[in-house]
């Protein structure tokens, strides 16, 4: 039972990070029906910016909490800018083309970003300094949940609530929902869909950046390749929950986190990355619309 609880809690922490990335996936898919293959790369970029900017301020001798804050801010800004630029460069010109051409373009972007970071920085794994504070009140239970995990969980929850509020109650949120339902109609009633799509990419990328900083602190290392596998897993989580659905992405992420954690704990750790793929295959065969997804009928 003890062992189970431990696995369950680490799965929860993992799940909440997947959720941060999966939200970006699901939002972009909901609005432009594109599997944004490069989303994982944006998250990797977020981690790197935090490492670089944080390192710079740290050498200047700023206090650690300030360094943490500044590096998160920088990481969010840069990742959002990358997300915005990617959409403008590689996806916008293909908006009227088939889904597969946009997907191929996304794969291209993914390759370009990985190799850009590889060439401009390094191919090695770099250790990532833990800026996150140690919370004293967690000391008695730290066998089960450490402060990094708790911070991750708390951050994710806050962001999720904020995102839900944004989409439910703001004007931009309304425009986003309208665009997701019917791009053409939304345009007719005066929604600036270019703006909506850009904002979607920016928000998604910002969330990914937060995820990047958190998970790099959690794992303690980073390299140019971490985005790929995390991106795929987040995508699996989004599909599992029902792509396009925000609560779905969160639910799917937790299920994936728990499955991975329990799977590696009880079955075999050799296949840690395979669980996500197996879930993906099963869900797509059994219920392609996901747990909370809407059944979409093709129009004839």
């Amino acid at each position: 039972m003890d062992y189970f609880l431990k696995l369950f809690l680490s799965g929860t922490a993992k799940g909440s990070i997947y959720a941060l990335i999966a939200l970006g996936y699901t939002m972009v898919y909901g609005i432009v029906q594109l599997i944004n293959f490069a989303h994982g790369e944006v998250y990797m970029i977020g981690g790197f910016v935090a490492l670089i900017v944080g390192g710079f301020f740290f050498t200047l001798g700023l206090p650690v909490p300030l360094v943490l804050l500044l590096s998160i801010i920088a990481s969010v800004i840069f990742s959002s800018a990358f997300g915005f630029t990617i959409e403008r460069l590689a996806y916008k010109p293909l908006r009227s083309k088939t889904r597969l051409s946009a997907l191929i373009s996304a794969i291209g972007i993914s390759i370009v970003l990985q190799n850009f970071v590889l060439l401009a920085q390094t191919e090695k794994y770099l250790s990532f300094p833990s800026y996150l504070p140690e919370l004293p009140f967690l000391l008695p239970v730290r066998e089960y949940i450490n402060s990094t995990q708790l911070i991750i969980l708390a951050t994710t929850s806050v962001i999720m609530v904020a995102l839900t509020l944004l989409i439910k109650f703001t004007r931009m949120g309304k425009s986003m929902r309208a665009t997701a339902q019917d791009k053409h109609m939304a345009q007719l009633v005066g929604v600036n869909i270019n703006q909506v799509i850009s904002v979607t990419f920016v928000i998604g990328s910002a969330l990914a950046a937060v995820g990047g900083v958190l998970i790099c602190s959690y794992m303690g290392q980073i390299n140019y390749y971490i985005g790929f596998i995390a991106g795929i897993k987040a995508f699996v989580a989004a599909v599992l929950g029902g792509i396009g659905s925000i609560p779905g992405a969160v639910l799917g992420s937790f299920i994936l986190g728990w499955t991975e954690s329990l799977g590696t704990g009880y079955i075999s750790s050799d296949y840690e990355d395979a669980y996500a793929f197996i879930i993906l295959i099963l869900i797509l065969i059994i219920k392609p619309d996901g747990i909370l997804g809407k059944n979409q009928k093709q129009k004839v």
């Binding site: 790197f48 490492l51 670089i52 944080g54 390192g55 710079f56 740290f58 050498t59 401009a120 920085q121 390094t122 770099l126 250790s127 990532f128 300094p129």
Partner: peptide
Amino acid sequence: MKVNVASGVAQI
């Protein structure tokens, strides 16, 4: 900027 991490400290 080019980062290099030596003994836990990032150098730019």
